[in-house]
Nucleic acid binder design. Sequence first.
DNA 1: TTAGATAATGAATCTTTATTCATTTATCTT
DNA 2: AAGATAAATGAATAAAGATTCATTATCTAA
Lengths: 215, 215
Amino acid sequence: MNLYSFILRKGYTSLQNNKLDLQKNKSEKYNKILNSAGAVFAEYGFYKATIAQIAARAGVADGTLYLYFKNKDDILYQFISFKTDVVFKKMNAAVEKGQNAEDKLRNLIRCHLEEFQNDKNMAIIFRSEVRYLRDIEPQIKDISKMYLDLLSDIIEQGQTEGSMRQDLFVGLVKRFILGAVEGVIGTWVSADGRYDLVSMADPLVDLYLTGVRGE
Amino acid sequence: MNLYSFILRKGYTSLQNNKLDLQKNKSEKYNKILNSAGAVFAEYGFYKATIAQIAARAGVADGTLYLYFKNKDDILYQFISFKTDVVFKKMNAAVEKGQNAEDKLRNLIRCHLEEFQNDKNMAIIFRSEVRYLRDIEPQIKDISKMYLDLLSDIIEQGQTEGSMRQDLFVGLVKRFILGAVEGVIGTWVSADGRYDLVSMADPLVDLYLTGVRGE
DNA sequence: TTAGATAATGAATCTTTATTCATTTATCTT
DNA sequence: AAGATAAATGAATAAAGATTCATTATCTAA
């Protein structure tokens, strides 16, 4: 055993993370494993997925996974962390492009649907495995939480502008909005992604804004 | 080995189910196990929950579970089937009590929130384990599906009455409504059920009906 | 070109748990 | 109350699969 693998194997987390961070840029093997894991987790669920499946799909040996990840949990953790970062950056950018609250909301929802449509594995895993992830890694950057914060800002801006009602219970409204998008995404996933998810964005925002009631 | 346990053990499904149906009335042991399973599944998730934990909590031996259930999967299946039946009956009754579409929608949402508030374990399990359940038992009576059908009827009635817009995309609206309730329930669960969920019903329905936009 | 370092392999190990079933205990029947 | 019948027990089994690590392959720099 050499020093490097010693560091990798024993719990020297910070060193290990440094190493892995470097590898995120360098090693396409890291990425290959992560993608394979995404596919396998999405298809079988985290628990039914096996290391052997992930390794086979990535075209590496079982043991190789342990050079890049601490353990099975860590693979899920890295996957979700990475996706969360990417998606959340895009969502922020989308919101910033909007002028008023309605624009911002529309951009956010569209971006959300786009990103999930473009990465069905991620959509499935976010839907199904977040609970487990929070169990193993409570301080995970939680995309729902960040999302809800974005929504708070938008709603408050809307109220200031006068484009949204003053009597809204913001805490409820934001969950209402997030819940509805997630529901729509969940349905799309169940339908195996067979229709265009992004085209739901405008009708959905329309529902948020004006509701179901006739004029 | 006697005939009874022979029947129970080998895959004579229909006989077994008959037996179990009888026992649902007779045996409080069956119910005790099911409740314990609910608590343990809710706390640890289906996979991390062990037979030993469930048995201990029910105050019986591990082997006893196999007199009442085919296997671990079957426990989850029975739990969800039973709860689905109960809840869905109540939801139907609630809807029928309403006169017009708005009343019906309000009753449905209130009933939904009440039932889940009164049974947090069920709320957690429905949220987290339905995917797995569909994997193992695809023909499960799916509460979401039934719920969505209820909503379809309500929305169509609303359109007929003129209390709901004609231009609604019903397929979207119903997922929108269900998604939003589920989101609100999920938040309540995450907050460990510390506030009153049912009081969300009216504000929520108000959002469905009139949306977020100012007048 | 090759010695030393790094990376990858995959068979063997180790742990965890669901499930079984021989045995014991409780319940019923006459 | 004895003899069945049914129910319950929990230690032993067996399978699955995550993780390890001795071995092999690949790379790098002089």
